[in-house]
Design a binder for these strands. Structure first.
Lengths: 216, 216, 216, 216
DNA sequence: TATGAATGAGGCTTCATTCAT
DNA sequence: CATGAATGAAGCCTCATTCAT
């Protein structure tokens, strides 16, 4: 995706392309069936190569998943940065992120990240043991932290909610695997859903005006 | 937990107790490592019995997980009903649920349900194929649906958010595995966290008039 | 069956009766499903006792089968002796045996012996290793040997067929598990079948008259 | 055995050869120990390959046995057809079969078929459930049926014995696992034994001349 | 480099046997 | 004696990983 296509030798470009195809297949399988059912055999079959070839690119199933995570995280952060650069106020930035992420929920890329983050099996394997993932996760949080702290200063967000809590609420609200179901079963459009969730989130984190009362 | 300890023969009580211990061990392993790593061998080892003994209680690994799900769902719904009976207004009921569930997040019971619901491998196996799970899930949603619809009538909740969306937002907000981390890493107390999340949620779903009422 | 009912204490008589019931159940299972599928659990269940009780009578599954074999062999030999005592000429003796055995084919007792003799699994286990079975087998063969040698002297049977071959032909002809099928599928009566097989066998082993043709 | 060695690629030939080796090992084990004791582990060990490799050729133990049965049945029928084509009269055909089969008794191939046919466990599994086996069995019976009916017309065989009975008598007479023992223990040559059994069978099924005596 | 056949550790499940009650 | 819960060895099968071609 961000691969330069010109300056490198053909062989290496082909290699890179195939690597992406392998990751794509792995991602699809991961979302469909989970980590254990994501068999090396089937990954290779979907790409149309031999199983051994997968091992020429990734030394183990675990490393393959790590690479997948790195790629998706990396793409994810890069896309976020683009959105952030285009919006001005913290609230506008957040709104852009919300829209982007909810759209992403319906693509497999983001679901793979969710699957990895939420599956205890994978969490143990990755978050706890491998620093790369933690690093990227941290990059993501830094961006959100900055937005929320800016927004507190500008009066957009409730200053009495600790920023880590805001970040968590943001991630939580957006990481919902159930939204998909809402669209399918309750006949909402994706646009409506985005609008509703966005409004919900902004009302929830808004700085309280004198007229609002504390619900507790 | 709800087992009567007096009227039944000793043997049966012991059997029931052991069954609970097996489910407890399975639950812990499921949360720690996921379904595949939850080996029958290790379940037995944790309970301190032989592998074959597990099979005297549950005919297969899959049935063991189904039983675990049934138990946890059942306990979960029962506890929720208790909370609902004690609160009066819809907002108060929700507040009770929020507090209960967030507390539950820190116990394994609820995490197991989340693990089962979110793991694609298990979702396929259970939600799609076994009606028991779908039935209990539906019972849960009915309760939430009723609260939200009552709350719309009483003016507590935004009438223009479709009820299924409210239900999803509720579940989403509360099913956050990351809250645990917040307490651990950012030194929040559980009580503070509950207060913050509650306020966030209620602001987010509140009817947007100046005259909002106190949910409690 | 041959148990004396008067001179022994009640307890021992009951014990002996139960032992027979266990052997009966084992026999039925052996014929129905073979040795491995003959589970100790099911034997006990069919008798209506606990599994452990079976082990009070027989120290192992193998010993149970050995006891079964002993009993059936013993009954078999005893019944044969009765028939032999009642018939006069060798041919009449053999005819009595043929009729008896073919009738027995349709009872489970004889089938169990066939099952044991013919199953390689059991043959290895019993004939080769345990002398009891070989001993009883030998008793059976002695009787047949005597009849055939008498019959050769009297001119009933072909003197140029070695007696062990005659014995084998006899056993072979009668041990046919396929006769059952003939009755079921081709609507022969048991009586007809016995008549046909008897005639076949006697013609086959008869001393040759000058008028018979050479088949080759 | 009937594999062409020239026209196919090397890989496929090796694969086929290995498959035959696996079937050979399975066959030997089946005859030696029966179906349950025929462990996949040991089959692999005897061929000198790993357990998993067996599963590259046969998807389950049951399928392996089915393939074994198919192969042996198929070879058996093919060889029989060769013999039949070379002999002219029904009696000569039968004599050829008798000689062939009795020779086969001393090879494992035929014993495996007997083991499968006679084991109740396997009978249930194969004859009742899988049509392939029934089909091949039927092919075998058709050939015998034709010979016997031809032989009745030509006056070689007793017309008053129903053909299915003749077929059964034939199979019964030849399927004797005890013949082996005769050669071993009573020092008969295989040729003598074949001559004796052949004569026995033909006398038994011959059309009756006026001079024969009725043994009953 | 690419292949895919081969490997074998590891997981689920069964069942003969034991033993505390 | 009788019970049947408990045990654990052993068997079938899968799949990540290796390696000869």
């Amino acid at each position: 995706m961000t691969t330069p296509h010109t300056s490198r030798p053909l062989k290496e470009r082909q290699r890179e392309e195939r690597e992406q195809l392998i990751l794509d297949a792995a991602e699809a399988l991961l979302v469909e069936k989970g980590y254990h059912e994501m068999a090396m055999d089937e990954i290779a079959a979907r790409v149309g190569i031999a199983k051994g070839t997968v091992y020429l690119h990734f030394p183990s199933k675990e490393e393959l998943l790590l690479a997948l995570t790195r790629r998706d995280m990396s793409n994810f952060i890069a896309t976020i940065d683009q959105h952030l650069a285009q919006a001005s106020t913290p609230a506008a930035k957040l709104a852009a992120l919300v829209a982007y992420q909810l759209n992403a929920v319906f693509g497999s890329r983001f679901q793979a990240l969710i699957a990895i983050s939420q599956n205890p099996e994978l969490r143990t394997r990755f978050i706890d043991q491998k620093s790369q993932f933690a690093l990227q996760r941290q990059q993501l949080e830094e961006r959100l932290t900055r937005i929320f702290e800016d927004g507190k200063v500008s009066g957009d967000f409730a200053a009495d909610i600790p920023t880590p809590v805001l970040v968590s609420l943001f991630e939580t609200t957006l990481a919902a695997h159930r939204y998909q179901q809402l669209v399918t079963e309750h006949h909402l459009t994706v646009e409506d859903l985005i609008a509703q969730v966005t409004r919900f989130f902004f009302k929830g984190v808004a700085a309280e005006t004198p007229h609002e009362r504390n619900p507790q």
